[in-house]
Design a protein around this nucleic acid. Structure first.
Lengths: 359, 359
DNA sequence: TTTTATAATGTGCACGCACACATTTTAATT
DNA sequence: AATTAAAATGTGTGCGTGCACATTATAAAA
């Protein structure tokens, strides 16, 4: 028969102090490990702490400290790409949501295809005296430099969109790209009775710098390697939207009468390929791409795009910032990696996603 | 050239008082419409309020009032159905999340197929002096009675799972069931080249009381009505898991060599049908059902179930409670209806959903 | 023992708001 | 003009923490 504070509720620091026979100040020092506590006192407080499950009142805590935190967010210029425009939506949402908690959010836009601009922004960020950074580290080496500098200055940071596992980030928010490609393969092969040719299209300025796109391709191919009942030939295309020969390359690709389906690894590329398909009047070629951008939705509803995989850029940035806020404000640690579900968007459920407030 | 408090930030009640030339008490009375304010003072305060966009510090507010709110949650007994067990997970999550904010959550379980038990719980809830109710109102008439009583006692309530639009609920959380059925139809017809028979199976004790299941069926049929290139015959089956003739009825259904696919409208029914299919060794019949219950996931990974539509019971209850908390604690109004996206679960993305912390 | 440095402990205020209560102003009545 | 009631306004305290600062105990040196 032991006595236990089962219903232990609402015990304040003051109560702990009384129970331990010390002052609130001493309890505070123990709680925050500030030192200057005798062994005897420490023991007494610890004993009470173990008996009573103390849960600090987070509201009181954040009111008391009521520090104004500044968070910096680094993403590619949202004006240059609708994908990043959606990311910015999440930032703006977070901004207004957290404003009342004294959180100030500053955005830093670099150029999507210009590594040097990332370095420039890194310097800007460093000199801005921020309390935390949330960043989409799309340039590997440049990001490593950023991380090193942040760590030197003891500034916590959160990653999203692109994972860099060697970083000491508080958290990463994004998707499992291998499985993303795998899923695309499955969806593209649905309803395909006999084999043929499938194309993987990367529409990016610099594919060799984009490990994440290749990861999607790897997943895509993996699906067919494990299904020996399917007989598909898979071909990779690296296209650049600025390439003057783009049209020729497409003619090449779409001219193949064996072509059964196309998987596009980027959101912006998806609508470009869709428009090409539309122009060529090819309606019987499957098309899978990424994200609920306006252009993509248009082609989805007209049936040219069959499926979209939603990467949820808006929610990624929003959650990244929220994790940082929770860390700064409430000292709550976010999960080290938070992988978003691979959401499948099709004509029939697209509206349910569009209207959903939780996205 | 007008002067505007654009950067209006962090203005406290005290500041408004000073600006308006009154005391903080007067501002407080205006803010909360407590009366006892002269016209002159009211005008002065209002003028300042309009110039400066006052945003109360919600943290300070909730600390100050620091009332202990009690919320009641009514759902069917989670032990009788894994779907409701997941719902309970959301309740438990909310319970631990909000505990530190002084929110107390009490659960009230009624019997899934017993309307009278709902009435009994209604009385219990009423006598429990709760500050808000979150309920899955699966019995229409009985729920109306509950609502009436709650309204008489000025107790706010939130609905989830089943919508009852005539209620004056703060909010409803759930899905658009018509589109849910529509989506099921699309997915089931994927890869079906020629026609055949499709079955809609309702596995419920009392289908006539379950308008929501019929809504799914309506959506399902609607898909084929709009696609005259498909030639499917659709047949409806109302089965009860307790029916002694269940096996016979299944033999009847599965014996039909024209059967191409089955759509099951409930989560529990999905695994039951799946097990029957497995027993009959029918692997070429498409199967679509609901929710990521353990049994369903087993059949999904073995390929008997092709797709699951995720209703997200856990998140529904969690969000329902969160809406109530935000209303009580911060006076924040939730959207009148919050429709969850129709999430498509398949072998290839199921893991990304299972590991996702945001679900 | 007295002095002095240092470690340990305790006290009090601010954070912004809500609400109770005290005080002052106004108007009505004698 | 004096009294009184009511209306309007102002003041102060608590909510639980965090943190700065004041105070006390302890031990070492004189």
């Amino acid at each position: 028969m032991f006595i236990r504070a089962v219903n232990a509720k609402n015990l304040r620091i003051k109560d702990i102090a009384k129970l331990a026979g010390v002052s609130a100040g001493t309890v505070d020092r123990v709680l925050h490990d500030r030192g200057k506590v005798s062994e005897k006192a420490l023991e007494k407080v610890m004993k009470v702490m173990n008996e009573i499950e103390y849960k600090p009142n987070l509201i009181a805590r954040s009111l008391s400290s009521s520090k104004k935190y500044r968070i910096g967010v680094m993403i590619p210029n949202p004006e240059s790409d609708p994908y990043w425009a959606q990311t910015e939506q999440g930032i703006l949402q977070a901004k207004s949501d957290w404003a009342q908690y004294g959180i100030i959010i500053d955005s830093f836009f670099f150029e999507q295809y210009n590594k040097e601009s990332f370095n420039l922004k890194t310097l800007e960020v460093l000199s801005s005296k921020l309390d935390g950074i949330v960043v989409a580290p799309i340039f590997y080496d440049e990001a490593l430099l950023l991380f090193k500098l942040l760590e030197n200055n003891n500034i916590p940071y959160v990653l999203f969109n692109t994972n860099i596992p060697v970083a000491h980030a508080l958290s990463f928010i994004g998707q499992d790209l291998f499985h993303s490609g795998l899923l695309a393969a499955k969806l593209l092969s649905l309803g395909q009775v006999d084999g043929g040719k499938l194309a993987v299209v990367h529409m990016d300025e610099d594919i060799h710098n984009s490990i994440h796109l290749l990861e999607k391709e790897r997943g895509f191919c993996d699906y067919f390697n494990n299904k020996n009942n399917f007989h598909f030939e898979i071909q990779e295309f690296n296209l650049s939207p600025k390439d003057p020969h783009l049209n020729n390359q497409f003619n090449n690709l779409l001219g193949d009468s064996n072509l059964r389906g196309i998987f596009v690894s980027t959101s912006k590329g998806t609508s470009i390929v869709a428009s090409m398909l539309e122009n060529h009047g090819k309606k019987n070629i499957g098309l899978i791409g990424y994200d609920m951008l306006d252009d993509n939705l248009k082609y989805l509803s007209s049936g040219i795009i069959d499926f979209l995989i939603n990467q949820n850029p808006k929610r990624q940035s929003f959650l990244g910032i929220s994790h940082m806020v929770n860390y700064l404000l409430f000292k709550k640690l976010a999960p080290k990696t938070e992988l978003f579900p691979l959401e499948i968007i099709t004509q029939q459920n697209v509206d349910s996603y569009k209207s959903s407030a939780i996205h």
